[in-house]
Amino acid sequence: MRNAKNFPLVFVLLALASTLASAYDPSPLQDFCVGINNITDGVFVNGKFCKNPKFVKADDFFFSGLNKAGNTSNAVGFAVTPVFEDQLPGLNTLGISIVRLDYAPKGGLNPPHTHPRGTEVLTVLEGTLLVGFVSSDQDGNRLFIKVLYKGDVFVFPIGLIHFQLNIGDTPAVAIAGLSSQNPGVITIANSLFGSKPDISPDVLTKAFMLDKKVIQYLQSKF
């Protein structure tokens, strides 16, 4: 009988645990929470202070610049223009963000990476992209790959490694929405071969089954 009395409490606790485990960015409990860095007259919420609502203006919810191409003159031929909370303070606590992605012709690459806090939905505005993501070890590391053309949409699930490659002869442009105001990015090559301090070459040699000199060469590049 004692266990039966405790059953409702256990059920509530399990339900709460399930809800917390499935939450990403916190749901707002007010109309908006425009992020500010100055603590004067501010309230701290999820890493940012909120501007006093009395002083909020339309410009706090506005960003201009996604019409401008990013500079793809770099080793991978790729540029990202982010519109996160830092660029658009009105996004604070709303759980969304957006980026512009520019790819150089014939091989511009957004290298394999993950977003630990957000799912990404990508729309091609110009050009032709080869895109894909890899499922987790639990799902057998399956590769899901697709060629996208102007107007096509593709989604990359939260936390999974994904990439985009321009396979066309002209520059490519895409817009991506993400399900976090700060989705984060972990670029796989940078993280493994460019960490500070370096990961021990012995670890990477065994993990990638390569000669240690190859690993050391890759680390020198990053």
Rank of each mutant, 00 (worst) to 15 (best):
N38L: 02
L130Q: 12
G140H: 09
M1N: 05
L66C: 09
V80A: 03
F55M: 12
S179A: 12
L109E: 05
I215F: 01
F222N: 05
F163M: 07
A174V: 03
G77Y: 12
N52T: 12
N71I: 03
A4D: 10
T187H: 06
N182C: 03
N74D: 02
N141C: 05
L91G: 08
G47V: 14
K206N: 04
R100F: 02
S135I: 01
V80R: 07
L192V: 15
G168I: 05
G90Y: 05
M209W: 00
Y217K: 00
G132S: 06
T187C: 03
H113V: 06
K5F: 13
N166V: 13
T128E: 15
V10E: 11
G107Q: 14
F63W: 08
I158Q: 14
L160H: 09
K51T: 09
Q87W: 01
L29N: 15
I188N: 01
Q164E: 14
K196Y: 12
N74C: 06
N6R: 07
F61V: 01
C50G: 01
L16H: 09
P26I: 12
L13V: 13
G184K: 10
V56C: 04
G159H: 08
L218W: 02
R100P: 01
A207L: 04
D60G: 10
G194D: 12
G107F: 14
K51I: 07
I215Y: 00
S18G: 15
L9G: 04
T19D: 08
A189E: 13
Q138G: 00
Y149P: 00
R2H: 12
Q181P: 06
P171A: 09
E126C: 00
G132L: 08
G47L: 13
A174E: 04
K48Q: 15
A75L: 04
K150H: 06
Q30V: 08
V76M: 03
T128H: 03
T19P: 00
D169P: 02
G118C: 08
D59K: 09
I167N: 05
P111V: 05
G194E: 12
S97M: 06
V12W: 13
L178R: 10
Q87H: 11
T119A: 07
F84G: 11
T170E: 15
N74H: 03
L125H: 10
G159S: 14
K146L: 01
P28K: 04
N110Q: 13
L13M: 12
S220D: 05
